[in-house]
Computed example of a mutant assay.
Amino acid sequence: MKWTELCIHTTNEAIEPISNIFHEAGASGVVIEDQSELDVQREDTYGEIYELDPNDYPDEGVLLKAYLPVNSFLGETVAEIKQAINNLLLYDIDLGRNSITLSEVNEEDWATAWKKYYKPVKISERITITPTWEDYQRVSSDELIIELDPGMAFGTGTHPTTVLSIQALEQYVKSNDTILDVGCGSGVLSIASALLGAQEIFAYDLDEVAVKSAKLNAKVNKVEKKIHVKQNNLLNNVTTKADVIVANILAEIILRFEKDAFSCLKSGGIFITSGIIQAKKDQVKSGLINAGFEILEINQMEDWISIIARRP
């Protein structure tokens, strides 16, 4: 399928009203390329900030892009968009250059364009995540490299909740440990556990696509013999006794199986939870304590919380 990229060079003031016009015209999403993003300073603890390319941004102002399917109504749709944008002048909204360009985009190109933003990222002291298509060379002898080809479904493994989980695994996983990965997604936490020395990992997810993705990524990283991936609802009917359980899922889901996690852990076992928003921190903490856990650590990255607990 072919798409038309409609791009307007405008101002920050006009972003919201023009985005609304794009959405009303049938665009499923809007891309904002703001030159001021180049000057934003962000915290960079482990080198996870990807350097932006100035060539992708305008010299001044903002580029707003919308994608419209190429069909017999395209000409009318574009004309209506132009008119609606010009009407914003009646409300004293500064449109800046207000120049519009059209270009054709193949769906195949669009589906893979995101790859240029996915680069190797060092997310902890020892672990670096890199896409399978990058030729990444190990920086130090003890560096552990995870290769991922996430597609569009499970992300790149560099979200703050994943980073918090891997940093905790790096701290608590010991040689010959048994790990349970609940809601495994791409399998990145299971792979990290295997590389850190765990003997056996049981990875569970309710989503069939996640199960296939985790199995594939385990093979790519040559740890498939250590990782057993299975479609399962949380820890239902799981009787394995683990040294560490890790769950990077929503707070509401964590509170559905905290008692099962307690039962599945050996004495002194560690429960690593992530995916918790700030507003849910106390709720999850209370739930873990009521289930019998001791709280060891509460860590935060951006707006996300990780709670590490231990079965006495």
Score class of each variant (00 low, 15 high):
residue 37 E to I: 09
residue 28 S to C: 11
residue 312 P to K: 12
residue 185 G to T: 06
residue 300 Q to W: 02
residue 272 I to T: 03
residue 22 F to D: 09
residue 124 S to I: 06
residue 289 I to R: 14
residue 144 L to H: 02
residue 227 I to Y: 00
residue 296 L to Y: 09
residue 105 V to W: 10
residue 257 F to Y: 08
residue 102 L to E: 15
residue 237 N to P: 07
residue 144 L to E: 05
residue 285 K to F: 05
residue 182 V to F: 10
residue 248 N to F: 06
residue 251 A to D: 01
residue 202 F to I: 14
residue 233 N to Q: 10
residue 188 V to F: 03
residue 79 A to M: 13
residue 56 D to V: 08
residue 268 G to M: 02
residue 141 S to D: 15
residue 211 V to L: 10
residue 101 T to W: 02
residue 301 M to V: 06
residue 160 P to V: 13
residue 285 K to Y: 12
residue 290 N to H: 12
residue 190 S to F: 00
residue 194 A to G: 14
residue 242 A to R: 02
residue 56 D to A: 02
residue 166 I to W: 08
residue 244 V to G: 05
residue 198 A to Y: 12
residue 202 F to D: 02
residue 150 P to N: 01
residue 146 I to Y: 00
residue 218 A to H: 04
residue 80 E to K: 15
residue 215 K to Q: 14
residue 85 I to Q: 10
residue 86 N to L: 14
residue 161 T to I: 11
residue 58 P to H: 08
residue 152 M to A: 10
residue 129 I to C: 04
residue 21 I to Q: 12
residue 292 G to Q: 10
residue 184 C to F: 01
residue 246 V to P: 01
residue 190 S to T: 02
residue 108 E to A: 11
residue 80 E to M: 12
residue 53 D to Y: 05
residue 190 S to I: 06
residue 124 S to L: 05
residue 74 L to N: 08
residue 75 G to E: 09
residue 95 L to K: 08
residue 241 K to D: 08
